[in-house]
Design a protein around this nucleic acid. Structure first.
Lengths: 244, 244
DNA sequence: TCAAAGCAAGTGTGATCACAAATCAAAAAA
DNA sequence: TTTTTTGATTTGTGATCACACTTGCTTTGA
């Protein structure tokens, strides 16, 4: 019986081949819509149609409708009584609500991560800090998308260390919900003279390196509060102008 | 022009008729599965098939598969690599993880509610306390389902007062995830001599009546910790027995 | 001129079918 | 007896179709 030999041979093969995976169309549609939502590619209050998205993504309606259903249950999209779906509109209450929830949960996650990150993980996020500086050095083209992606990677690299399989999906859901709001603020930021995001990230890294959970939490809250505060002011002044 | 008269007539009609609503089949399937999950009707690790559920619910596969997809994104169900779906198995880590998340978020929700509940709302949950006592008075039949439903109503009546449209869906998601676990504990409770749930609820109501957010948070954490702690012990002793 | 009725295009929902992958059982080979 | 292979059944996925509801526009009537 050559069972052992066959087994060994299979292991050799497995070591050289990378798993091809078996992603469904629905998963791709879902991921794509997620990406678009977090990245703020859709505007608040914009309505989405199944057939429209299916055409844009070059598939049939079936994967799209299931992906939309999933996004609706995550509150990333909103089902109108007319059965059409739209990205939720921005309101003052919603902004405050989202910021409070994010501070609470992401704060907890980073506090947990602070006690669990080893030098290996710290090095990873420090490298991201460097990457950020690099990007700012050749700042002639403001690559907002790249900035947003890097920011996201930075945060989730940390959250992943919190060791909670329950908190992380909740954080993802919160990013999904605040994506369209945030993007509005990001655009405004880049017009109104850029604030130094890297500074806030450095504070976070410093706190994590010292394993200071409380400081990390505070630094994080300061970081995520900025776009919300900015957006809040913008909305309030717009409302004031509109009412006069 | 009799426009005003017609308008008035329509109002009269509207006052007598109750809106018929337009719930889709998918919504009903989703609600039903939610109810079953929170109520612990499915066992941890149990696998569910689309066609099986469709037969059980007497519909076609279409509404079921979309409902399942939604429940998977909420982590109420789990998608296996084989593409079959099951209710997530219980592990020690998961229990601790769920309890921590629930304490954090439901604690925050009740703290917010404590400052926002008026005498009207307090009266409502006090009435539920009374209903509980009533039920315990004629305790000859242990109606576990009714107890669980009442417990759920009690908690969500409070949470609804927190004024956060973001936190409440997260809490619902957490109940969905802990439902199958909790049920195991509940059954064990009713065997092993019932602990007085009403006592914990009374503590919560007392704290809320005094608008004492911190006390309310602590009382709540004590309340929701019990089944988790019980389940934790049970699992640990089972593991100890299994390994010897 | 204007409001209401009627019509047409568009949209979501559910059912059914085709196909590929997985699972399980029986049969064949070692 | 044990392992492998083969075949049948089950299952999830995606496409397509039929139907009902909504929406926006045109036409009709006052």
């Amino acid at each position: 019986m050559q069972k052992a030999a066959i087994e060994r041979n299979n292991e050799v093969i497995a070591a050289q081949l990378t798993p091809v995976g078996r992603e469904t169309v629905q998963d791709r549609v879902y991921s794509e819509l997620r990406r678009a939502l977090i990245g703020g590619l859709f505007e608040p209050s914009q309505v989405l149609t199944i057939r429209g998205l299916a055409d844009a993504l070059v598939t049939s309606t079936m994967p799209v409708r299931e992906a939309l259903g999933r996004l609706i249950t995550e509150k990333a999209l909103e089902a109108l009584p007319n059965r059409s779906v739209r990205v939720p509109p921005i309101t003052l209450e919603r902004i405050d609500d989202l910021l409070r929830a994010r501070s609470l949960i992401e704060g907890e996650a980073i506090a947990l991560a602070a006690t669990r990150m080893g030098p290996r993980q710290i090095a990873t996020i420090e490298a991201m800090l460097g990457e950020w500086d690099e990007m700012r050095a050749l700042k002639h083209k403001k690559d907002i998308d790249r900035e947003a992606t890097l920011n996201q990677s930075f945060h989730f690299e940390i959250y992943r260390c919190c060791g909670s399989a329950v908190l992380i999906p909740m954080i993802e859901s919160l990013w999904l919900q605040s994506g369209p709001c945030i993007r509005v603020a990001i655009y405004a930021f880049s017009e109104a003279g850029e604030v130094d995001t890297a500074h806030y990230h450095r504070r976070i890294v410093a706190a994590l390196a010292k394993q200071d959970a409380q400081a990390a939490r505070e630094a994080l809250v300061a970081d995520i509060s900025r776009p919300f505060a900015f957006l809040r002011d913008k909305l309030q002044s717009a409302a004031a102008k509109g009412s006069t």
